[in-house]
Design a protein around this nucleic acid. Structure first.
Lengths: 234, 234
DNA sequence: CGGAGGCTTCGGCGGGCACCGAAGGCATGG
DNA sequence: CCATGCCTTCGGTGCCCGCCGAAGCCTCCG
């Protein structure tokens, strides 16, 4: 089989159906560009194997590549791809408990559960708390759907200082948080908010993965902006 | 590889990575329960092959089965699964043009583009027109996100006669329509609306697939309810 | 109760593909 | 300019898995 009658759905799923390729995509969910070698070591495969996988993922439109000297940098092609992978992964993770055997692993997942990025927006407890605070303050309609209110748009542009360009990307999207089992803010607005928090130095990345930490400045800022207490941020 | 380190993402994607299994899932997007034999004939594989695929899909949580006598009825396990498959399929289809070689095929896809169901809600031109009309009448916030307004909720319950049970399912969700390239209303509200249109006899299914047709009663009803002209419904 | 129809299990086959190591291109840096 | 490092291409290998037909089970119906 796999003839010309193969649905596009199967072709796309086939790209993610391999353990190594899936590991690559999940690593790239941190929003940064990785080199081919980094991904190979991370996934534990030979450089040649990684190279072939990356070629497939690029040809399939999931990844974008950029050559710099002797390095091949690769990243998720578009925010849409990131959302897609988050979506599928979120559903898949929901059904399978992820046991952390080592202490080191437990500490790392605790940090991830506390605050992390989902490609370009906030997730984890921090992401959910921020979303809930926005909802409580009338900046976000989060009961019957997910939509930015007029006040929310103004707040983002003036208080936060985010620029909401009029691209084709949806402004607001609900992303289901698999640690909190509640939705958090994604889409262009979620990305702009997260970007501003980084720019202001309120948020810094921990280690080499997706986990982040709120700085003292960030604690003060988020308290003033959204009324978040330090307890919400740990 | 494919050892214990395989991410859940890859396992789930693997279920959809096979052409036959993907064909099954897409057929089941019509929201009905199919027998194993029907799916086998539809996909053009032996009954034994279909049986094995269905066992995998059920074990993977994508399908639910129900035995009635000597028939094995199978359907998508939850609305969430339907949304997931729509999401992936929508993205995959966007990149690959679907040429219709036969006249029969062209007529069928024309009917699909006009009006169809997406598992349990409206799609195609009809779905998008309904969504836009709801937005224009202040029943739905569709610019900065996707959320039902207060008026929209009341309208659904009184005018349409839909019951919005308080399940865990999100009330409103934006589903990107791949023929119109615009979002249409999904989620519990979209499903309730679609169900009521069927119950009122405003909408009937064409043939054995997902395409639907608006009845004369439906044309009058949708004009009164949402101001849709007959031109919007063809 | 016997035949027919739907479904599953089993064996066997074939193809696709993930993997590696070796060898070869480029870029960098001493 | 050679040495080093990063990446790719190329064979080769092994395994997984999708496919079928035959046989058997269960249910329904005449």
């Amino acid at each position: 089989m796999m003839g010309p009658m193969t649905p596009p759905l199967a072709r796309l799923a086939g790209l993610l159906a391999d353990g190594t390729r899936a590991t690559f995509c999940l690593a790239l969910l941190d929003g940064r560009a990785w080199t081919a070698g980094e991904l190979a070591r991370y996934a534990g495969v030979a450089a040649s194997t990684a190279s072939e996988h990356l070629t497939l993922l690029v040809a399939g439109g999931l990844l974008a590549e950029e050559h710099q000297g002797r390095h091949r940098y690769v990243r998720l092609a578009t925010p849409r791809v990131a959302e897609l992978i988050e979506e599928i992964s979120g559903y898949a993770d929901a059904g399978s408990p992820a046991p952390h055997q080592s202490l080191r692993g437990a500490v790392a997942s605790e940090a991830m559960a506390r605050a992390r990025t989902c490609y370009d927006h906030l997730a984890g407890r921090l992401g959910v708390r921020v979303t809930e605070a926005m909802s409580a303050r009338g900046l976000l309609e989060a009961e019957a759907g997910f939509a930015l209110t007029e006040r929310g748009r103004a707040w983002l542009e003036t208080e936060v200082g985010a620029t909401l360009g009029g691209g084709r990307r949806p402004l607001v999207r609900a992303c289901l948080d698999w640690t909190e089992r509640r939705p958090h803010l994604a889409g262009a607005a979620g990305a702009a908010l997260c970007r501003r928090l980084h720019e202001r130095g309120w948020l810094v990345r921990i280690g080499t993965q997706r986990a982040v930490r709120v700085t003292p400045d960030g604690q003060a800022g988020l308290r003033d902006l959204l009324g978040l207490s330090p307890a919400d941020l740990t």
